[in-house]
């Protein structure tokens, strides 16, 4: 089975649960008080997808706005970006829109964007209606899913959806027994700062 390495970065406002989603996905574990990410953290998880194995190289980034300037380091060369918001916080949805804009401007051209409305388990204090978010996602042709890292809802599905969106390899010349890297070079652009 061929292993494809897919670089994925998680973006989104602070405290929406980016690290929790990663933690749930990679370790199937939930911690209420997971340390805020400084800079970024790196985790991997391999999942089967069709006749391929997708090895997600997940870069989990810091949410606070002043760390935004570092984000290009992480989304550069990414196959997918998961933008997370907190359904109980309208602000985080606004931040999400900013991220979408930034990715559009500076991100890789064919990057798969997934929008994850986290904290789905706190539906009773919801501030962002699912419909609105869904419509927004459709408007930008992004994957949309509401998740709950705490209750392990839709986290696997989120990454499966991403896997499915990744276009299959055009030239499967590589030996199927060997792993290979996704040699996605950053677009020749001068727009990056790092």
């Amino acid at each position: 089975m061929a292993i494809r390495e897919l670089k994925v970065c998680l973006l989104g406002d602070t405290g929406v649960g980016k690290s929790s989603i990663v933690c749930r996905f990679v370790q199937d574990h939930f911690d209420h008080n997971i340390s805020p990410t400084i800079g970024a953290s790196f985790l991997t998880k391999t999942v089967p997808c069709g006749n391929e194995l997708h090895k997600f190289l997940i870069w989990d980034t810091a949410g606070q706005e002043r760390f935004h300037s570092l984000a290009p380091m992480y989304y550069r060369g990414s196959a997918a970006a998961v933008i997370v918001y907190d359904i109980t916080k309208l602000d985080s949805f606004q931040t999400l829109k900013k991220w979408v804009k930034e990715l559009k401007e500076h991100g890789p051209e064919d990057i798969v964007v997934a929008i994850a409305g986290n904290k789905n388990d706190l539906g009773d204090i919801r501030e962002v209606p699912m419909k609105e978010a869904k419509e927004f996602a459709e408007s930008i042709a992004a994957i949309f899913i509401e998740t709950s890292a705490r209750n392990a809802v839709n986290v696997e599905e989120l990454f499966q959806k991403i896997s499915k969106q990744i276009p299959p390899l055009e030239n499967p010349e590589v030996d199927s027994n060997e792993s290979f890297k996704l040699t996605r070079q950053p677009p020749p652009s001068t727009r990056r700062c790092c």
């Binding site: 400084i38 800079g39 970024a40 790196f42 570092l70 380091m73 992480y74 790092c194």
Partner: peptide, 13 residues
């Protein structure tokens, strides 16, 4: 390998 992806937070905190 871009070490700064790893070392950035060493310095910051």
């Amino acid at each position: 390998i871009d070490v700064s992806l790893i070392t950035f937070n060493w310095f910051l905190v």
